[in-house]
C-alpha cells in the first residue's frame, strides 16, 4: 500500500521536479555567464535570504509589509464577498455594477497609485488601500457569479421543503456558493500581494518593496535576488495551499 502511494507520488511529481531542476540550472548558468553582478547563484541567494532574517534592520520592514498585506487582504475579503453577494442576490445592482467591475479588472491600476498617495499620504494606509483595490475586484466578480449561478432547482427544492430564509442560506446558498467564492479569494489573495508590493516599490519609505528599491540604487544584486525569492516562495506556498482546497471544493460539485 505504502509503495503504491510512493509510486503515484513519484510519477506525479517527477516531471514538475525536472522542470524545477531546469529552472535552477538556467539560473545557475546565468550566474556563471554574467557573474555575481548580474545574478547571484541559487545557493548564494538562499544563503543570503536566510542571513536577512538575522539582520535587525530587516525585520521591521518585513513586519511593515506583512501588516499592510494582511490588513489589505481583510478589507478585500470582507468588502469583496459582501458586495459580491449583494450584487449576485440583487439582480439589478449586479447588472448595473458588473461591467464597471469588469472594466476595473483590466485597467493598469498602477496608474491610479498617485491618486491613492495624494488621498492617503505616504504611510502604510496608501499601501493598504492599493493592495485592497487590487484584491477586491476579482473577489467581487467571483462572489457575484457564485450567487447568480446557484441552481434554481435547489432554491425550488428549499421552497418545496418549506425551509425558512435562514435555513435556505445556511443549508443551500452557502454550500452551493462557497467553491466559486473560494476561487475568487485565491485570485484576490495573489492580487492583494501584487498591489501591496507595487505600492511599496513606488514612493514608499518602509517595507520589502522599499528594500528592493534601495538595493537597486546601490546595485546590491544579492539582496534583490534574495527578496524576490522570498516573496515568490511565500506567494507560491499560499497559492498552492489555496489551490489544493479549491480543487477539493470543486471536486464535489
Amino acid at each position: 500500500m505504502s509503495t503504491a502511494v510512493a509510486s503515484t507520488f513519484a510519477t506525479r511529481w517527477r516531471d514538475p521536479l525536472i522542470v524545477l531542476a531546469v529552472i535552477l540550472a538556467g539560473w545557475q548558468s546565468l550566474n556563471l555567464w554574467g557573474g555575481d553582478n548580474v545574478m547571484t547563484s541559487p545557493v548564494a541567494t538562499v544563503r543570503h535570504a536566510v542571513e536577512l532574517f538575522g539582520q535587525s534592520r530587516f525585520l521591521p520592514h518585513l513586519r511593515e509589509t506583512l501588516t499592510a498585506y494582511f490588513v489589505a487582504l481583510a478589507i478585500a475579503v470582507f468588502g469583496g464577498v459582501s458586495f459580491g453577494v449583494l450584487m449576485g442576490a440583487h439582480k439589478l445592482t449586479g447588472e448595473v455594477a458588473e461591467p464597471i467591475f469588469t472594466a476595473l479588472y483590466s485597467i493598469p491600476k498602477v496608474t491610479l497609485y498617485p491618486l491613492i498617495l495624494l488621498s492617503f499620504g505616504l504611510g502604510i494606509q496608501a499601501k493598504i488601500a492599493f493592495g485592497a483595490l487590487h484584491g477586491i475586484i476579482p473577489i467581487v466578480i467571483f462572489s457575484m457569479n457564485a450567487v447568480r449561478q446557484v441552481n434554481r432547482t435547489y432554491l425550488r427544492t428549499a421552497r418545496a421543503m418549506s425551509l425558512t430564509p435562514m435555513q435556505t442560506v445556511r443549508h443551500i446558498i452557502i454550500p452551493a456558493t462557497v467553491p466559486e467564492i473560494f476561487s475568487g479569494l485565491r485570485i484576490g489573495v495573489s492580487l492583494t500581494l501584487l498591489g501591496t508590493m507595487l505600492g511599496e516599490l513606488f514612493a514608499s519609505q518602509r517595507g520589502l518593496g522599499f528594500l528592493l528599491m534601495t538595493a537597486i540604487d546601490i546595485h546590491d544584486v544579492k539582496t534583490i535576488m534574495a527578496l524576490a525569492l522570498l516573496i515568490s516562495i511565500f506567494a507560491v506556498l499560499v497559492n498552492s495551499m489555496m489551490l489544493a482546497v479549491d480543487r477539493k471544493l470543486h471536486a464535489r460539485l
Partner: peptide, 28 residues
C-alpha cells in the same frame, strides 16, 4: 507529459507578484 510537468508552474505563475522581479530584470 510536458503538460503535467509545467502544470504547477502555470498554476502558480500569476500568484507571484511580477513587480518583485522588475529589479532583477533591470539588473540583467
Amino acid at each position: 507529459r510536458l503538460r503535467r510537468a509545467i502544470d504547477p508552474l502555470l498554476g502558480a505563475y500569476y500568484a507571484i507578484p511580477h513587480v518583485a522581479f522588475y529589479p532583477v530584470l533591470i539588473v540583467i
